[in-house]
Design a protein around this nucleic acid. Structure first.
Lengths: 129, 129
DNA sequence: ACTACTGTACTGTTACGGATAGTACAGTAA
DNA sequence: TTACTGTACTATCCGTAACAGTACAGTAGT
């Protein structure tokens, strides 16, 4: 796992870590049962405080995408639907609305948008078909 | 203009205001030359500090989607492309990647995603065809 | 048993952003 | 003159992020 953070971004470090592990597990880059780097190892690698990594890990556990074995480490959980169907739909709708709101101000036409989206989805790896 | 804010959200009030005016102007709900509510009027209406509204307004002006006439008020600017083509593309790509990243963890298939997107784009009002 | 690792849990401290309150000033218009 | 407009300050409060340091119990190899 190659985690990268940028301190200049307006998004907190621990959220960047959470996001990258979320994605790695969702895409299968990190398979079920595989161990995540230890809090101290990752903290040392990223030159940040181990508490910050620990904070990210608690989020991963709370989200159910990683399981904790105190004394052993953190491990990627089984890929499964964490949310209910309603929650899943709600999150999708919210994400989409946020995206459209962003794009609205850019003045793209529906055609341009559709074309761009289809392209991007097609080339996005590891979204199951 | 009916601005609504939620204090419970993790997004700052001033950003909520900016976002809603951005959208209102982009969609044409707020036409060029139309006046925005005064900082104090809106602050009073939303029961927030007028400095918070002023902060939102400075962002709108900086973004070029509203013009300020000190002593008179703030007015919706002409709808135009604020960004260069490169910047426009960059923002679109970034927004899309963020969206896909969000959705990736939800486990949607490409077909589901495509269908959902097309539907949503079609029903979204006022994106020029 | 010893050692070295693991996650977790504290106490402080520092820094920054968001929001508040209050005040002030110059421009605009009835 | 009066009442509005945006703008610009100062000061304060609170929450979050990140830091430093320490500590403890669980796990595993030697």
């Amino acid at each position: 796992m190659n985690i990268q953070i940028s301190t200049g971004a307006n998004v907190p470090i621990y959220k960047q870590i959470v996001e990258q592990f979320r994605q790695a597990i969702a895409t299968g880059e990190l398979k079920q049962g595989e161990a995540l780097p230890s809090v101290r190892a990752l903290a040392n690698q990223l030159v940040i405080n181990h508490n910050t990594v620990a904070k990210a890990y608690t989020h991963l556990v709370q989200d159910g995408i990683a399981v904790s074995h105190p004394g052993k480490g953190l491990f990627a959980a089984a890929v499964r639907n964490i949310y209910s169907d309603a929650e899943r739909t709600r999150r999708l709708e919210q994400a989409l609305e946020h995206f459209l709101s962003e794009v609205l101000t850019l003045g793209y036409t529906k055609e341009e948008l559709s074309r761009f989206l289809e392209e991007k989805i097609a080339e996005t790896a590891l979204i199951k078909d």
